[in-house]
Amino acid sequence: MIRVAAVGDLHFRESYRGGVRSAFRTVSREADLLLIAGDLTGIGRPEEAAVLRRELSIVSIPTVVVLGNHDYHSDCEEDIKSILRDGGIIVLDGDFHKLDIRGTSIGLAGTKGFCGGFGIRQITPFGEIGIKEFLGHVEEETEKLDRALAGLNTDIKLVILHYSPVIDTLAGESPELYPFLGCSMLSIPVDRHGTDLVVHGHAHHGVELGQTDGGVPVRNVAMQVLRRYYIVYDLVGTGG
């Protein structure tokens, strides 16, 4: 059994100093790895990331993250990635990382994802250039995830996104917001390559449980949904 701790949307601000350290004090005993599904910072300031990195230094298990829209807000996303990586945190942006836990190989693929809507209401590349560019970004994110998953041949495959790949986990959100909370295009590589679990954040008023059309479990781990600083998923039937 592999134990995966997960959370998203910490929205860390410097005034929270001490809070995250306290919340993650025992996670390294409870889980084999920690996933953070984006929006690590409040408004994407490197100062926030630097303090968060120090707070997360209490975590001794591998910590794998993607950035979210808040982490991009101040146009300092590359600085934030560097700061986190300097602290030993694995930041995925269209790439993968492999781990071995008690003889079980774990592959993690991650990217931010983007908006676009779901199913037959998904955005279509028609009309103004702005619409086509908007769609182009989610297409790019989907291709990044596809390439990352294609590089994995591990016992377990985990996907980390910030935006949701399914509509299921948005229940409770205002329907007007659905197109801005994720895109079903992101679920295509998940089903194509086979995945054991997808975690995402971003939908603060959604629900935890969902799945792709191909039956892959999807979990909205936004802290605001979990109402705790992390949840631990016990992946059963995974050896280890």
């Binding site: 409870e30 054991d196 191909g214 892959v216 705790r228 600083y229 949840i231 631990v232 059963v236």
Partner: peptide, 22 residues
């Protein structure tokens, strides 16, 4: 202010290793 529960001790089971059968 959002009330947070204690994080520790909350586990959820997910049956895995079914990829080959999908």
């Amino acid at each position: 202010v959002r009330e947070m529960k204690r994080p520790d001790g909350h586990h959820q089971m997910i049956i895995s290793a079914e990829r080959g059968r999908r």
